[in-house]
Amino acid sequence: MAKDRKPATGNGRPAGKRAPAGKGGRTRPAANVVAPQRPWGLIAAAVAVVVFAAAVITYAVIQVNRSKEDEVQSIDEIDGVQTFDYAAGQEHVTTEVDYTESPPVGGPHDGNWADCTGTVYDVDIRHENAVHGLEHGAVWITYNPDRVSDGDIAKLADLVEGENGRMLSPYAGLDSPISLQSWNHQLKVDSADDIRIEQFADFLTFRAGEFPEPGASCENPAFAADPLTEADSSTPIGPSDMPTAPTPSADPTETSAP
């Protein structure tokens, strides 16, 4: 009798027979192993942003510190400033005043003030009117036209124009190239590049406690349009005000002998 044969499978092999290793049959494909990629481009961009921001902040801090180096907290910090003692209560006069200081820094003055709203004059304005502007808290910058250049005048004008509480004018016979005045204060310098000019102007323009009439106006457009000069007599021009009430220090005090 013929031997029983195991039924053949669909691949021609007897049932139960495995395909020889490596031949035929299905095998799993080899897995592709991909190494994780670091986002170097993003990291570099982030580092660049941080470095740039740090540079900007550092620059800003340096600039602020430099600007503060020139700031003053007391008039004593500005070398060369002279201080005087004109008390509130100076009278209004229509006559010419023989001032002790030149340019003057206080004392009797005209009832009309020179406009001091950042005004740049090209004439030697009448001194009695200018002193009234000082009484209102203005800084008056003067220069000897024979001892400064046009460029120097332009630098001074840049410090005055558009700044309420300041005025600039030539001053005939000035004994220094440039002189700055506020009520009871004066500073004379040789150069328009002197840092003390800006320090004086910044510190004393409308400086509380340093002038007799806080809150008084510097506006006198009529005077700005047609200023009185040092050669002119007193002429009513623009607004006026009442003299400030004298302070106790305005009059000399007497002490009794013990």
Rank of each mutant, 00 (worst) to 15 (best):
S179W: 04
A2T: 13
T94Y: 01
P145G: 00
P212W: 12
E128G: 06
V64Y: 04
R26V: 04
G111W: 02
R28A: 05
T229F: 02
A130L: 11
K188V: 05
E210T: 15
I237L: 14
P252Q: 12
M242K: 12
A231F: 00
N164K: 04
D190G: 15
K188A: 15
A15M: 15
C218Q: 14
S191R: 14
Q37L: 08
P177Y: 01
S169P: 02
A88L: 04
L174Y: 06
L228G: 01
V47Q: 14
P236Q: 07
N129D: 11
P221G: 09
E101W: 04
V56T: 07
S249Q: 11
S256Q: 12
G41L: 04
I153C: 00
T9A: 15
D251G: 08
N144T: 05
E101R: 06
Y143N: 03
P239Y: 13
N220A: 14
E96D: 09
R147N: 13
G215E: 15
K155E: 08
H109Q: 10
G209S: 15
A88I: 04
I178W: 07
A30I: 05
F200A: 15
H109K: 10
L174D: 03
G12Y: 00
T100E: 10
A225M: 08
A2F: 08
D241F: 04
N164H: 02
A19T: 11
G24W: 06
P221R: 11
E254M: 09
P239K: 09
S74F: 06
V61K: 08
V50M: 15
R38L: 01
A48D: 06
V123P: 01
K155Q: 09
D251E: 15
D85G: 09
V123M: 02
G238E: 03
A30K: 13
F206M: 15
D232S: 08
A245T: 13
A53T: 13
M167C: 05
P39K: 06
N32D: 09
E77M: 10
Y143A: 03
A157T: 01
G12F: 07
A48P: 06
S234G: 01
L168V: 03
A53Q: 14
V123Q: 05
L168G: 01
P108H: 04
R147M: 13
F206G: 01
T83Y: 08
S74E: 07
H132P: 00
T255I: 13
N164Q: 03
R166C: 00
H136G: 09
T94E: 10
H132M: 03
S191V: 00
N184V: 11
D190F: 01
D79C: 01
P36C: 11
A222M: 10
A224Q: 11
T83L: 07
S234A: 11
F223R: 04
T253G: 09
R207L: 15
Y86G: 07
E230Q: 08
V189R: 08
D146L: 09
V139T: 12
V47P: 02
L134K: 09
G12P: 01
P239L: 07
G173V: 02
G165D: 04
G41F: 10
P221N: 13
K68P: 00
F223M: 13
I75D: 07
T142V: 13
P108L: 05
K6A: 15
D122E: 06
R18Y: 11
G238P: 08
N129H: 08
R207M: 14
D150L: 00
A157P: 01
A222K: 14
D194V: 09
R26F: 08
P14W: 12
R147K: 13
L187N: 06
T94R: 08
V50N: 01
G12S: 03
